[in-house]
Design a protein around this nucleic acid. Sequence first.
DNA 1: ACCTTAACTTAGTATCGTAGCC
DNA 2: GGCTACGATACTAAGTTAAGGT
Length: 566
Amino acid sequence: MSGDHLHNDSQIEADFRLNDSHKHKDKHKDREHRHKEHKKDKDKDREKSKHSNSEHKDSEKKHKEKEKTKHKDGSSEKHKDKHKDRDKERRKEEKIRAAGDAKIKKEKENGFSSPPRIKDEPEDDGYFAPPKEDIKPLKRLRDEDDADYKPKKIKTEDIKKEKKRKSEEEEVIWNLIGEDLFTKQGDHLMSLCHVFERWEEERYPEGIKWKFLEHKGPVFAPPYEPLPESVKFYYDGKVMKLSPKAEEVATFFAKMLDHEYTTKEIFRKNFFKDWRKEMTNDEKNTITNLSKCDFTQMSQYFKAQSEARKQMSKEEKLVHDNKVTWLVSWTENIQGSIKYIMLNPSSRIKGEKDWQKYETARRLKKCVDKIRNQYREDWKSKEMKVRQRAVALYFIDKVGTELDGQEYVVEFDFPGKDSIRYYNKVPVEKRVFKNLQLFMENKQPEDDLFDRLNTGILNKHLQDLMEGLTAKVFRTYNASITLQQQLKELTAPDENVPAKILSYNRANRAVAILCNHQRAPPKTFEKSMMNLQSKIDAKKDQLADARRDLKSAKADAKVMKDAKTK
DNA sequence: ACCTTAACTTAGTATCGTAGCC
DNA sequence: GGCTACGATACTAAGTTAAGGT
């Protein structure tokens, strides 16, 4: 959700209601969207896998180095987890690298500088597009949402109870099976078999089989990874290098070599027929008899792989990291920064966080007076560090409060976000002004004004003042309280809706100014403005015409009247 | 103590979809 | 049916914050 001021608590609630009440329409939209997304994702996935080898040895080296240090000093649980992730990743990378240097070279020319890390499970051979958690869970059904909205902590206690209840139920069901279903015992049995209840609920009118379908996205198989060079295929006793497609199909057969199926004539015939479809002409000419094919090396290779998988520890098998919220990450190739794919703002994970943000701001409301009093006191502190901290905190908190007289004015001039110049003259309290003068004593222009202060000191102080307090919270708080005050001031209960909307927009604008929101005029702005102006002009002309007509009509009427009376 | 980085938030522009108008 | 305006959504650069590294 964007803009602090745009979402106070009541609005968040409203947002959820909106989703709920619109779920049908939205679902439809969502489906369409996902359809598109899948296509995109599919393409993306192909791209990613194409580029996945462009991974740098650099980052791997880094990982290894990190690992070393961490093990030495005994890292936290969380970090151990990360290690496992990295280990896994490294293994993946190594595997991929083994696939061939030529490929790497080619792919280095392309954009990606790291293979995307996708949070799925290794056992899962399918690619998810979109990833398992819907990329756009925007309009999920309410009940679904509710289900995972609740639990901050799922107590093991509850799970145990639930398990116990289930097993007791099961026992009763087993005891009742065989009973006459039309007796009370039967009713009891039916009531315990929840699956019947569900069918009961979902019964549709005669002939109607479904009301809507939800597309959760197709599962795409990962692109085929060729076998390592060392794994040979033999035809008629001679080594034969298969084309990638033929090799891929051959692996299906190789993987089930131990199965009885492969001895069945019909099965062998069917497989061979399908296999030939993927062979090159040369292969078709050479491979004419399935019995002369030797898949044993392939078979052994896959057996060894599955054995290795079994050897992995429980933790290794768990690929996911439930300490983070992103679905996919990769290293961007220009700045080397990390990019993420995260959930939509309307997802539980984001919505809950956003809600928490406002809860923190509400907590600040309770102690903000105390905090303000304290930093005012600290302006007089003997300790320079405390004074600097207090002045800094004042600027973090201060939101254009009007002061009597403009005696003490501070001029701000610095590159702000997006390197946009921030230039403003702000009236401040006398003590702040005097303190700033003090901080400037014996300093060159390039010296730090707050030389005794750093983020660590300030943040620590904020934490001490209130748990969870950071600089951002002041902004959220001040924006929210301003919106509330403005709404109170500008709106009247008996106003009509357009008037209320106008008042709301005005209140919102006040907050936008407070937060220094800037927006370029839209490209079509001037054109729209001109259209509006020409409409106004046309109306004015019309009005003038009408006036003229009225005047002459009146004159006519007078003449007529005179004539009539006459 | 200072610097770097991962993970997340914020806030901007771009684009899409659709209602309403002609 | 085309055009426009406008709200919703998508996309993403550039912030913040906390934790880790040197």
